[in-house]
């Protein structure tokens, strides 16, 4: 599923944000136009991809956000919106009136929630208002950016607002050459322990936890893998991209942490598959140079069999930042 950026502005400033670099380099008033949206929708439909994610920045900052959603629904796309849940009064009323009654099979939200203890009151009020109306369409998302984290508050959100009983667990990744908060490689096992410690309460509350990309398999012990396997009914993923992101200026790149590298124009490709293959090929080349985030990734049988991709590629890129240009040239572009 490709990600379409409607805006390049955000209402929050999360310490782990891996879109930070991209946002800083973009024009804040650069928003997706109708004509570009139609072009992307056509390209996706032509490629047989009928699912689309809308994100930003904060996608609801786009003045045509609601219109874009109903347009895409009318074109038979499944629309998934990544939002902070924080939106202005006018946009919220419009979204409530038009979108709250849409069939959950057609429209869904992922609301990335931060720990309320560390969020301003006004932000919390906004998130609660959003969840009160859209909770039934919303999966909570939580980004882990330090080994010691706490998402107890999400259980309360799920029960209070009738959210989907699934937590989308993201692992914050480094932006090569830049500073953002993420779990250091040597603390990943500690983070995994903490995560596993949540399983009993999640099972009791019948809440599933699904991994976003970039979790390495070997940070979990054999026993932990077994517990995760049972918890997620056998659906476990330790993959890494390329997720295809499309900017409002029709630039395209293979996932946010790598937005600084290999950016292309969408017009250079004939299908989503072409784009995906292009970035898959680059990722593959990078992984030949640096197999994964651990040294052991080099000859790991699970990586070879693609059960695990060796963690987020952004970690691998960090290897090349300060070295002389001795590898294949595209890696430094």
């Amino acid at each position: 599923m490709a990600n379409i950026l409607l805006t390049q502005q955000c209402v929050r400033s999360c310490p782990y944000c891996f879109a930070k670099k991209h946002m800083a380099d973009s024009e804040p008033d650069d928003i997706l136009t109708w004509d570009n949206l139609i072009y992307i929708a056509d390209l996706m439909e032509h490629s047989g991809e009928m699912g689309v994610s809308l994100l930003g920045g904060e996608p609801t900052l786009h003045p045509n956000f609601v219109d874009f959603v109903i347009y895409l629904l009318e074109r038979k796309f499944h629309v998934n919106v990544f939002t902070s849940g924080i939106m202005g009064e006018k946009m919220f009323s419009e979204a409530e009136r038009v979108l709250s009654g849409i069939n959950p099979d057609r429209l869904s939200f992922v609301c990335n929630v931060n720990n309320p203890d560390k969020s301003p009151f006004s932000e919390l009020e906004n998130v609660r208002r959003f969840l009160k109306t859209f909770g039934h369409l919303t999966t909570p998302g939580f980004n882990i950016y330090k080994p010691d984290f706490n998402f107890d508050f999400i259980f309360q959100y799920i029960n209070e607002f009738g959210m989907r009983r699934h937590i989308r667990l993201g692992l914050a990744h480094p932006i090569p050459g830049k500073h953002n908060s993420y779990v250091p490689i040597d603390k990943m096992k500690q983070m995994a322990e903490k995560l596993i410690a949540y399983l009993p309460v999640m099972e009791r509350l019948k809440i599933k936890g699904g991994f976003d990309c970039g979790f390495p398999l070997c940070i979990f012990s054999e026993e932990q893998i077994g517990r995760l396997f049972k918890h997620n009914s056998g659906r476990l993923s330790f993959g890494c991209g390329p997720a295809i992101d499309i900017g409002p200026d029709m630039s395209v790149w293979g996932c946010f942490p790598l937005s600084n590298t290999h950016k292309k124009s969408i017009y250079e490709f004939d299908s989503m598959n072409d784009i995906r293959n292009y970035y898959r090929d680059i990722h593959h080349k990078v992984r030949i140079e640096v197999a994964g985030i651990f040294d052991a990734c080099d000859d790991c049988i699970y990586r070879e069999e693609q059960l695990c991709m060796g963690g987020c590629l952004a970690h691998s890129y960090n290897h090349f930042i300060n070295e002389a240009n001795i590898r294949f040239k595209e890696i430094y572009q």
């Binding site: 139609i38 347009y71 074109r75």
Partner: peptide, 10 residues
């Protein structure tokens, strides 16, 4: 022009 683009695409 955008309006026509939208209508035709729908």
């Amino acid at each position: 022009c955008t309006g026509l683009h939208i209508l035709a695409s729908l």
